[in-house]
Amino acid sequence: MAKVTFLGLGVMGYPMAGHLKAAGHDVTVYNRTTAKAKKWAEQHGGNWAATPREAAEGADFVMACVGNDDDLRSVCLGPDGALAGMTKGAIFVDHTTVSAAVTRELAEAAQAAGLGYVDAPVSGGQAGAENGQLSVMCGGDAAEYDRADPVIDAYAKICRRMGGTGAGQMAKMCNQIAIAGLVQGLSESLAFAQKAGLDPEKLVEVISQGAAGSWQMVNRHKTMAAGEFNHGFAVDWMRKDLGICLDAADELQVPLPVTALIDQFYKEVQIMGGGRWDTSSLIARLTR
């Protein structure tokens, strides 16, 4: 068992930190909204701290799951940042989906301070976090990954090292690119079925057993057909991620025409007032 700090108690981080405590680790949490950190500590019997630095002091591992590049910098850097409080040899594990640029920046800062750094974005959404069934894609030094892997296991269905620093973030971009295309395809299929007078439930029962089947189809078709979009990862966050994908694609000179188009479709959903709807809300463009 390890002494672990968790920074960020949103819809993902709150249950992830809970799984760490349930696994027997000594867990201290930090959240920008102190009331949520206190609530977590009362619920799970762990500790909370007022700053990232205070939370990170003495920890073997510091996990983070925050919003974006700037949020991650804010909990890592500066006199109250986690890196300032960590002991040499400790490892920072970042579960946030961020740019490869900030990953390189913070990994270099950690290395200069004698710390390890593993970029480890996750997939599986709120349900995956709550059930401890996340897919975790990691980048970083192999020995540091090997040390962190048993701790990450508390909330992972699968965890793999994809390569050196930044490789985890690149793998997460691949994940988001694939999801965007799947959700758009499913949206068009269900919208077409409705116009054709087909029963969506019967349709999905048949086609999900063939080559068209996907997690999105099995888990989202009912709520999509009902126009219910409060079941996970928000459109605002998906656009943030797709922006990272498209920036990286420009740098790598890889064309992503479908991803770029679907990013604009999500922009339409935002204009419709659906920024906090989940990503399956692409169908709303087709059925309004």
Rank of each mutant, 00 (worst) to 15 (best):
V4I: 15
G13C: 06
Y14E: 06
P15R: 04
G24R: 13
Y30M: 05
T34I: 04
K38H: 09
A41E: 05
E42K: 03
Q43L: 11
A49M: 09
A59T: 09
G81E: 07
A82W: 00
G89I: 07
G89A: 12
F92I: 04
H95F: 15
A100V: 15
L106I: 15
A109I: 07
L115I: 08
L115V: 12
L115M: 08
G124Q: 10
G139S: 03
G140V: 06
M162H: 06
G163K: 02
M170E: 08
A171L: 12
C174S: 15
N175C: 13
A180P: 02
L186E: 11
S187P: 02
S187K: 10
E188S: 08
A193Q: 10
I207T: 13
A211L: 11
S214C: 05
W215R: 10
H221A: 08
K222Q: 14
A226K: 13
E228L: 13
H231P: 00
F233D: 10
F233Y: 12
V235C: 06
M238Y: 15
L242A: 07
G243F: 01
L246P: 00
D247L: 10
A249M: 02
V254N: 02
L256F: 05
V258L: 13
F265M: 08
Y266K: 12
V269I: 14
M272R: 14
G273H: 06
